[in-house]
Design a protein around this nucleic acid. Structure first.
Lengths: 235, 235
DNA sequence: CGAAGACTTGATCAGATTCAATTCGCGTGG
DNA sequence: CCACGCGAATTGAATCTGATCAAGTCTTCG
């Protein structure tokens, strides 16, 4: 066989339902074909396993296809900070471009799959396609902006405001992907939410209880129903 | 005059003493010449004035040439978070690439000058020069990494650890630019330090006093002398 | 069905904030 | 040139938010 092995349609960018989330919307069919030829591998990561670890060499960017991840940075002696949660359509690995080595690690919150985008080949495609180039810039800059607003959260907000902001942000991201923004399932544990928001797991739990008392949210373990988004936003 | 107006040597990348900090170290002389032709303007910003504001259109990246800046993101109703301090050789404006609009604003902490790097022209240069391309990627990714470690600071550290980390980080950056890492002048007020570290100005002041009692730092208003960097790192 | 892990809730404690009172430093104008 | 005045910084006391410790309940999964 001279041709590359045919892939299942599910692993093609050109037919992927997440394309609108993940890639620029105005790619030509020729650019899409090139993209297909780059992104020809997916990888399965089991719940709890690492997609990449800190200090591992950077070779590829990833896009979450199914499932979800957390990214964490480690401090000396095990203190860790969750720097983000990624759901389908969102990028992973942008931290590695800088030094060629990952500084954070990405752990699957459930059995998940990612698309693998070899960075060297992506660079070449970007060199040919101004649209892809722009998109890569935008992805990186977007990550910078996302982290800035997280710093705002960690630097200025109370525990109550942090959890409210977290829930509204998740809801918006689910909505953007066509899922319900009102009811969703948290794949992460209370401890991981706390570690993301800079508070302890007990505090997360107390704030959930408070939201329930105040009729803002109906938490049922990991199943969350948002009753009063305006109320949450007002906090 | 057919030729572009001659610039003073001080405004040329090719002769700039900060080039090693600001640009890739392995540029060819032809690449340097191209760089000179792009970065042909500097701008003065008075103490307290904005280099760019949130929501202003993004057109250029900037590099601090002299002086220093803070970048802040605003929340509804005036709550603000300082997301970074920039000293000579450091980039400004990377947040704007994403949406074409700045999300933070950059305020001069003292009378300062910046080099203006029009982003459209930089893109073109990057297209020609793989080294410049890599450098731009690295700048953006580096900002992502920097912000991650700041999130770690805001999410997991005590006030004492935050200030110690802040001082050591500044010291390292001054050293990298050939300034003393032991003694330096803080251009920002206690309030701004606090706003960066997610603590109140009184707490910053108390921590400075504590460091002085413990013989770690000799603070004299804004003049700082670091006595025991290992001790600071151990906190 | 039982055990381990995850979550909730209460009581107490500690670190940081808030409020307030001085003190210090610096630029301005008499 | 010095005094004045204002913003910045320091320090103390009271308060509060969130952390810690601990007990008990709920879930999940082998």
């Amino acid at each position: 066989m001279c041709e590359a092995e045919p892939r299942s349609p599910a692993t093609r960018c050109s037919t992927c339902s997440l394309r609108a989330v993940c890639m620029p919307h105005d790619l030509t069919s020729s650019e899409l074909r090139q993209l297909d030829s780059i992104v020809h591998t997916t990888r399965h990561v089991r719940r709890g396993e690492a997609l990449f670890r800190a200090f591992s060499p950077f070779q590829s960017l990833y896009a979450v296809r199914t499932g979800s991840f957390k990214t964490i940075v480690m401090h000396r002696e095990g203190a860790e900070q969750v720097t983000g949660f990624q759901i389908p359509g969102e990028p992973l690995g942008l931290d590695g471009v800088c030094s060629g080595t990952h500084t954070c690690e990405a752990i699957a919150l459930e059995d998940s799959t990612v698309c693998i985008i070899p960075f060297g080949q992506l660079e070449m495609l970007c060199h040919e396609s101004p649209r892809m180039q722009r998109h890569l810039y935008a992805l990186m800059s977007g990550e910078i902006v996302r982290e800035s607003s997280l710093m705002m959260l960690l630097g200025t907000m109370t525990a109550e405001q942090r959890l409210a902001t977290f829930l509204l942000d998740l809801a918006a991201r689910f909505r953007a992907r066509g899922y319900s923004a009102v009811q969703f399932h948290l794949k992460m544990r209370r401890e991981e939410i706390g570690c993301f928001l800079g508070i302890k797991l007990e505090t997360v739990s107390r704030m959930f209880s408070r939201f329930q008392r105040e009729g803002l949210v109906e938490p049922n373990g990991k199943q969350i129903r948002i009753i009063d988004p305006e109320g949450l936003a007002r906090i």
